[in-house]
Structures are given as C-alpha cells and as structure tokens.
Amino acid sequence: MRYLAERTLGDYLPLLLQGIPITLELTLASTVVLVAAGFVFGLGRGSRNRLIRWPAGFVVEVLRGSSAIAQLFWAFYVLPYFGVELSPLAAGIAVLGLNGGAYFSEVVRAAFASVPKGQTEAAIALNLSAWFRLRRIILPQALPIMVPPFGNALIDMLKFTALLSLVTIQELAYRADAIRSVLEDAGPVYSLTLLIYFAMALALSALVQWLEVAVNRWAGRSTRTGRKAGPQERSTSGVPRWAFGR
C-alpha cells in the first residue's frame, strides 16, 4: 500500500473508466427524451390548432431561453418544494432531454414542413389512409432530413452529460474531477478524460452514419438517387464540436 501522495493515475484508472458506461447511458437516456420531446414540440408548433401551437411554442421558448444549468438546479433543488421529488438521475435526464428536445423540435418542424403539400394532396386523392400517408409518404421524406442534425444533437448530448456532475451524478467528468483533487496533478487525468470523450464522440458519429444509411434504406432513398448529398452533409456531424462541460 502506497501513501496517498505516491499514488498515480494508474491506481484510479478503474474508477475513472467506470464513468464511461454511466456517461453513455446518460447520453442515450437523455437522447430518447430529446427525440420524444422534439417530435411532441415540433409537431405541436407545426399544428394548425392554436391551442396546441401556442403552448408548445411557449414551452420551447422557456427551455431555450434559460440556461440548462439553471434548469438543472431548479429541478434538483426547487421542485422538491412543490412536492416533486425527482432522483438526481431522473431530474438530470429530464432536463437534458427536454432542453435538447426544444432545439430539436425546430429540426422536426422544418423537416415535416419541407415535404411539399402536394404529396399529402396526391395521397388523399388516391384515398390513402392518414396512417399510411404518415408512414409511407411523409416520414420517408422527412426522417432522412433529420438524421444529420440528430447526429449533432447526440454528440452535444454526450458533452452536456458532464453538467450532471454538478448534481452529484458520478459520471465521467465527476470522477475525473474527484481523481484530480486527490492526485493534485490535473494534467494526466484531464488529458485522458478528454481522449475518452473524444473516442466516445467518434463512436457515436459512427453510429449516426450507420443510422443514416439505415434510415435512407428504409425510406427507399437508394444509393443510386437520393444519396448524392449524403457524405457532404455527414461531415457536419462527423466532427464532434466537443467541449468539456464546465
């Protein structure tokens, strides 16, 4: 047993690495909320009914207009006063997901709006059911447009999970900070953490590229025709705009 002062990063490596699955799980869980919220807000804001459109717009503006950290603290410290006691995990995932969803709603709205009205009208004239129109006509034209921005959102989410260290969730950044304070040498641990985030971001971009191919194939946009813009579009999400949480 070495003295504390003699310990190196190697001793704490397992502790740090255990943060990886936690960070990934947080990213995926928040992204699920992001997608759900993005569709609800996005379709709500595109609705013809004012009673749906206005509240959706209001919620989106509130979420976008205030800092995510403030929202996180609010969910964590203020909500309990209203009798809503969320675990740090639930509060964190909800705040990150809803926040991302507020931004993603614009992508969803724009993607649906980009499908020409004539498509729906032709489908109605052919007597296709509403469900079929959505599934076979509208979504195949709207979803492929959403994938590259979704890639950005996913990698942003990875980066934002570091915020959750502020509410005692022991993900990667939390652990890096803790280890740094014991080692008293910020260099190695932060450098390694940076590399780990970078590797995770690369893995996520690979996942998004796969998703893009899969969605386009599902949508019937074969490699022959619809894919010309693919590789160029992808590069925007391929390079992670990475930054460390704080």
């Binding site: 498509q119 032709a122 052919l126 034209q141 019937g220 619809g226």
Partner: peptide
C-alpha cells in the same frame, strides 16, 4: 374520383 395534378406529385422515394 381520381385526380392528376399540374405538378405531378409523384412520390419521389
């Protein structure tokens, strides 16, 4: 009823 439109409106995918 069936209708043919000025802008064709074929399903592009």
């Amino acid at each position: 009823v069936g209708m043919v439109f000025q802008q064709f409106n074929l399903f592009p995918h």
